[in-house]
Computed example of a mutant assay.
Amino acid sequence: MINTFVTLFWRKCLLTQAAKRLEDRGFRVIRLEAGQWNTERDMHRAIATALDFPDYYGRNLDALNDCLGDVACYGGYDDAPEGAGLVLVFTDYDRFATTCPRSAQVVLDIIADQARQAAVLRRRLICLVQSNDPQIRFEPVGAMPVLWNNDEALDARRC
């Protein structure tokens, strides 16, 4: 979180280790297989189910922003203890980014923006994004760049 609220991973083993470290520190970790999302609708369905969004969730990007804001900033819809953080872990995100590039970018932007707002309220929201494409790039999100994790940032094998 020092550099960005959304962090990229190429190797799943590093992603798993990072998620486990956060879980061991009391974070609620939600794992989502983005590689199974063929449409934006699939993404909405998966996130709404995982975060227990209310029935009135509109299943569009504006509604995602609203409901994720409730979760990130106020702990809504979940049973996480006060002050605990939430970690969203997306695996195979490159597949979703290929099929729905605009939505994939906007989802990360929404998460980064909500994470920044949550931090002001002393809550924590982190997103770990795994890609099988070692060259994947995203535009800055939440006015911050999407960066590789420290262990792989300079990894020549990723190229």
Rank of each mutant, 00 (worst) to 15 (best):
M1H: 07
M1S: 11
I2C: 10
F5I: 10
L8Y: 02
R11G: 05
R11L: 12
R11C: 11
L14V: 06
A19L: 09
K20A: 12
L22Y: 01
R31N: 08
R31F: 07
E33M: 07
A34N: 09
A34D: 01
A34G: 13
W37L: 03
N38C: 00
T39L: 02
D42N: 12
M43F: 13
R45V: 13
A46W: 04
A50C: 11
D55Y: 08
Y56R: 14
Y57N: 11
R59G: 06
N60Q: 08
N60S: 05
L61F: 09
D62S: 04
D62I: 10
A63E: 11
A63F: 10
D66T: 15
G69M: 04
V71R: 12
C73E: 15
Y74D: 14
Y74W: 15
D78L: 15
D79N: 13
A80E: 07
P81Y: 06
G83Q: 05
G83S: 11
G83R: 05
L86K: 04
V87C: 04
L88V: 00
L88I: 09
L88P: 03
V89E: 00
F90H: 02
T91R: 05
D92E: 09
D92T: 05
Y93L: 03
D94Q: 05
T98C: 13
P101I: 07
P101A: 08
A104Y: 03
L108H: 14
I110M: 10
A112S: 13
A112Y: 01
A112Q: 10
D113A: 08
D113G: 01
A118I: 03
L121F: 14
L121Q: 13
R122I: 13
R123I: 07
R124F: 00
L125D: 00
L125E: 00
L125T: 11
V129R: 00
V129M: 00
P134C: 07
Q135H: 07
Q135Y: 02
I136M: 01
F138Y: 15
F138Q: 10
F138V: 10
E139C: 12
P140L: 00
M144V: 15
N150H: 15
E152W: 02
E152T: 03
E152H: 08
L154G: 09
L154I: 06
R157N: 11
R158K: 09
C159Y: 01
